[in-house]
Design a protein around this nucleic acid. Structure first.
Lengths: 209, 209
DNA sequence: CGGTTAGTGTACCGACCGATCCAATATATA
DNA sequence: TATATATTGGATCGGTCGGTACACTAACCG
């Protein structure tokens, strides 16, 4: 048949993710994407159909390569008792480092939720599923962390963790200190009035993970 | 001296607020602002200097006419014990009504925080102050609501309420049910293990726009 | 009144937007 | 090697962006 593709599609997607993460869908210009991917415009449009198609690919890469690796311990068959605290500490750690994309730009999907592109029904659905995946992971983490609590309290704790994580990711761009305080508070709630020795050592002053 | 102004600046600002709230700073086009304000382009630029100047005026109007009226009971000299719960219920009420701007578009400032314009240092400062004002109000509300708790627990509760409110406003645009659940959870946390049945009677007024 | 000054509306500016077209290129198959 | 087919890059499309220039108009003041 014809000529074979000389670039790696997932490499291009990853490069585009960097641009979309930094500037948002609407703020990312096609020339930016050309520069980041090293591809010409026609190659991008041939491979992804549109700027939006490339964004969808970048969203998928974001979920697979950024979100889920971090959630993995909370999605495994067996969840460690300290997994949720570890997740929150890890998040706090990357949010405190301004050079990392999460601290500099927040969450790609939450940013999209409040942007003009967030009115697109397909994207809204993706974001709802993202929120559900996050909430489910928090729930499993809370169950593992606090077996001493009744179901309702565990659910409330899980929802609270979700809220703290979402709020931190929303604010980190303009107020990284405030975002870290939110994550510290989630850790404090997680360990509050814990009678079990499983209470993870929570030291909110620590900057490292 | 010369001719006097024939339009009311605060009327124009309020009209512009509607546009910026719905589309964000970057998504709002100057022709949209002309249409909404009823002013011609030159009048807008003469009165506000730039699109950005008009946005700053709209932000100020948003704080004074949308945010603070709702926070007022939490900022008064004496805070009622049920004021925070009332605030959360009121917020939940407007978030459940899709025709109201808060439910349809979320928070103007939090949306700006995650948008390209959110990199502007002046705007970042405004958003940080907004967050602080919100957190201070939550703190006072939590103190009034839960005099039975020690200071650290009250502070944790206040921060948790802030997190739930911020997260709800971030998500409401794509997932109003999820946003309402977050506010319900904040209410549950607020009343958790409450010795008194001080739950204030529900009166979801103030469906402002 | 007339003169001065400021508010207003129209037309227009250069720049950039996402998207498309097409000629040129490169490679897998026959 | 010949041919077919897919990839690639440059030129270009119509549309819209935020912002400006300028003529016109209205109203305060001497």
């Amino acid at each position: 048949m014809g000529r074979t593709r000389t670039f790696d599609e997932s490499d291009a997607t990853r490069s585009a993710l960097g641009v979309f993460w930094g500037h948002g869908f609407d703020g990312a210009a096609v020339p930016d994407l050309e520069r980041a991917t090293g591809l010409s415009r026609s190659s991008i449009y041939h491979a992804f159909g549109s700027k939006r198609g490339l964004f969808d690919a970048a969203v998928s890469a974001y979920l697979d390569q950024v979100v889920r690796p971090r959630l993995a311990p909370l999605q495994a068959d067996a969840v460690a008792s300290g997994a949720l605290a570890e997740y929150l500490r890890g998040l706090r750690h990357v949010m405190a480092e301004p050079t990392l994309p999460l601290a500099a730009h927040g969450c790609l999907l939450l940013n999209a939720a409040t942007a003009p592109v967030g009115t697109d029904e397909g994207l809204r659905q993706v974001i709802r599923e993202y929120r559900e995946e996050l909430a489910a992971a928090m729930q499993r983490g809370a169950e593992a962390a606090r077996p001493d609590l009744d179901a309702a309290s565990v659910a409330a704790l899980a929802t609270a963790c979700t809220a703290h994580v979402v709020a931190a990711m929303t604010l980190v761009r303009v107020d990284s200190d405030g975002a870290c305080e939110l994550l510290d508070n989630a850790l404090a709630l997680l360990g509050a009035s814990a009678p079990s020795a499983a209470a993870a050592p929570v030291s909110p002053e620590r900057a490292d993970g």
